[in-house]
Structure formats: C-alpha cells, structure tokens
C-alpha cells in the first residue's frame, strides 16, 4: 500500500512539473507574441526603420538577416557535404573517423562568441575584410559547419545499405554512387540539415555583433565588404534603451519577426524530416 502511495506521489509531482514547464514555456511564447504584436503595424516588415529604430519597420534588418543566413549556409554547405561524404564514403580508418567525429562534436559545443573573436581577427584583420558581410558570413559558416555535418551525416548514414549495394553491384564508380544514389536519396535529409543550420544562424547574435553589422548608414550591402544590418543587433541596440517605450516596443516587434523567421525555418525542417522518414521507409 505504501509503495503505491509513494508511486502516486511521485507521479503527481512529475506530472505537475511537466504541466508547469509546458505552461511556463507557452507563457514565454505568449508574452513574445503579446509584446511584439502591437509593433507589427501593417508596414512593419516593408518599411525601413526611421529615427534609428525608434520608428518605422525592419525591412532592411530582416533582409540583412536573410542575406547573412543564406550566404553562411551556401559557404558552409559544400564543406560540410564534402567532408561528411569523404568521411563516410572514402575514409576507412576507424581511428581517423572517430577523431573527426570528436572534432565535430567539440566544434558543435564551442561557444559562438569564440567563433566571433577568432573569426574576426582572422578574416577581418589578417585577411583585411573588416566589419563586413563577408567576415560575418564566413564566421557564421564556420559556426554552423558542425550543425550541418551532424545532420548530413545522420542522413547519409541512415540511408539503407541496400541502395548502396544495388548501385555497387551495377558497377557504379564511387563518384557515380555519390551523385546517382547518395545525394538524391539523402536529399530530404540534407535539406532538413540546411534548414536547421539556417535557424541556428538566424538566432545568432554574439558572433556577428562586432564583426558584420553597423549602427546606421546601411540599407542593403552593395558589396561583400559592406556591413549588413541585422534583426539581432537591431534588437540589441533597442534593448539597451529599455526605458524608452517606443524603442522597447520596436525591439519586441523585431523580436517577434526574428522568432517568426526561426519558427518558420524549424517547421520547414520538420516537414522535410517527415518526408525523409517516409522515403526511407519505402
């Protein structure tokens, strides 16, 4: 009887905790929405910001965030894809594979600010790219490399062995094996990885705040050596003025746009992941 009572008690506790956690986190989402919504007047997304962010919209900031995200992923993807395929398809030394895996995990856990520091010194100062689009996207590209690698590896290694073997016995070369079988079969897995990478870049502030963006004077970068306005740093600047009601409202609005972007990317990633699962079950 006693055991049963204990069990009931524990169960009651953990169920309450779960409910509270979910409630807390949903509250956060709700707060973000409620605080951000008032700023979202009709043109918020399509107007440029005026008066240094206190009025107007976030057109160029959103565009800048997108530009940075996309360049970072485009720079990172070939390297991630290439190195994963090299590791899974060409490399046979188990020790080397383990080492590279460890490297990926460590890089994945490395605090993003370190990418910003080292990246800025290397790309910005040594290679003389300054505070710019190219510096920021290179830093972000290195930062998401492990993220992309992990998801691409998951997709490639999850590919049923039978497809590889079917290709192999037909006499396909390794290259042909890769572009005839592995890439098409892992398409959805790779796309899932790309969207997760994009979402990660969209949420990053520390690595770009002193490497890629600027306070004012920029709309869209006209070349790779121009800085890019971003939502993240826009929020940071506005948030530092938290007493000023207008700027704070603008910050929440920009925050909601940013979250919307991240959520959208996550949802797209989910959709592709579902397709991936469906295809692999055929």
């Amino acid at each position: 009887m006693k055991a049963k009572a204990v069990e009931k008690l524990v169960l009651g506790m953990i169920s309450t905790i779960t409910v509270l956690v979910v409630a807390l986190l949903i509250t956060i989402l709700a707060v973000l929405f409620v605080k951000g919504y008032p700023a979202l007047h009709s043109g918020f997304l399509f107007e440029e910001s005026r008066d240094f962010g206190r009025a107007g919209g976030v057109l160029y900031q959103s565009a800048g965030t997108l530009i940075l995200m996309i360049t970072a992923v485009l720079l990172s993807l070939p390297v991630a894809l290439g190195s994963v395929l090299y590791q899974t398809e060409y490399l046979s030394s188990g020790k080397l594979k383990t080492f590279l895996m460890q490297l990926t995990y460590i890089l994945n856990a490395t605090p993003t600010i370190l990418f910003g520091l080292v990246g800025y010194l290397f790309f910005g100062v040594y290679l003389d790219a300054g505070v710019s689009w190219v510096t920021g996207s290179l830093i972000l590209a290195v930062m998401i490399l492990p993220t992309l690698q992990v998801s691409i590896r998951e997709a490639v290694e999850g590919l049923p062995e039978k497809y590889r073997e079917a290709g192999m016995v037909l006499g396909l070369t390794r290259s042909a094996q890769i572009y005839r079988i592995i890439l098409p079969q892992c398409f959805y897995g790779i796309v899932t990885g790309i969207f997760l990478g994009l979402a990660r870049v969209a949420g990053e502030t520390a690595a770009i705040m002193f490497t890629a963006t600027t306070f004012s004077g920029i709309q869209l970068p006209q070349s790779y050596s121009d800085p890019v306005p971003t939502l993240q740093t826009h929020i940071l600047i506005l948030a530092q003025e938290a007493v000023n009601p207008e700027s704070l409202a603008q910050a929440w609005g920009a925050g909601l746009v940013l979250i919307g972007l991240v959520f959208m990317l996550t949802l797209v990633a989910w959709a592709f992941r579902t397709r991936m699962v469906m295809e692999s079950e055929l």
């Binding site: 986190l25 956060i28 973000l32 502030t205 948030a239 910050a251 940013l258 979250i259 959520f263 996550t266």
Partner: peptide, 16 residues
C-alpha cells in the same frame, strides 16, 4: 513546443 523553444534566439531571452 520544446523544439520550437530550443530554437528561440539568445537575444530574445535577453530581452525577456
């Protein structure tokens, strides 16, 4: 909900 929240940017948490 958890996966969505895991992706909320740090700057937003800072704002909160």
């Amino acid at each position: 909900v958890m996966e969505l929240l895991a992706g909320v940017p740090g700057i937003i948490y800072g704002l909160l």
